[in-house]
Amino acid sequence: MSAATTTDAGTAGPGSAGPLQVRTARGFREKHGRRATVWAWRAGLLVALVAVWQVLSGPVLDPQYVSSPQGIWERLAGWIADGTLWTNTWITIQEIVLGFLLGAGAGAVLAYLIAPIRVVWTILDPYVMALYAIPKVALAPLFIVWFGIGTDMKVLLAAVSVFFLVFINTAAGVHQVDSALVDAVRLMNGSRRDVALKVVLPASMTGLLTGLRVSIPYALIGAVIGELVASNRGLGFLISDSSAKFDTDGVFATLLVLSVIAMVLNGLVGLIDARTSRWKPLDT
């Protein structure tokens, strides 16, 4: 029994119907017990997987095909020592960030310009959907012709992937604005500008944030695909280069780095999520 409830800090709402705010003291187990268990299991699972992989690789499985944790580790150490890893990772990160900023910026701005004008949106809608549906990999050859095989091409490929997701989600957010809220501002004699800034903008923020959230991984995908298709630098290049040399250790090492980047990006998504839920509208 480590839980203790103190009622002295309670404050009642107006009338007797208001909720009561009570301070409670909980022990570590109650507060973090579940989280701790989950993390312990996660760590345990990882260790077990790596151990099994290491043991099986060699006697049972051909390291030429499945590599081994030790091989990956040695390759990573080598790459870190000669700077290969950091140079290529840095290039990929730059492409992701630039592509994301470019695509998200353009998507949000265009959505706010076009979506409020219902007619224009209705006219453009099928074309937007058609372009959105194109697998962005299919654009890579064209982008090579247009922009060459430098980083520009990867940045733009990432940007295009991000653009549509942000654009469509922001537009949906704009369209889902509760018309009763718009009416409320009209009743206050608000101008069109007031409606745009004090209702549509904050109300559509959920849509924009959803767009940002779902598009973050696509920035990574766009950049790496660009590098896989044609490049001489970046993590995508490391993968294709290693595999061309039949260097499975190198391929797995690069994949490991990519998943670390993906996890970091996922953490950013989590931050955005926490922000989004604060904006959640009323359920009535």
Binding site: A180, L181, A184, V199, A203, W279, K280, T284
Partner: peptide
């Protein structure tokens, strides 16, 4: 009839 307070 329904609340139109700005949720944000």
């Amino acid at each position: 009839q329904h609340d139109t307070l700005m949720p944000w």
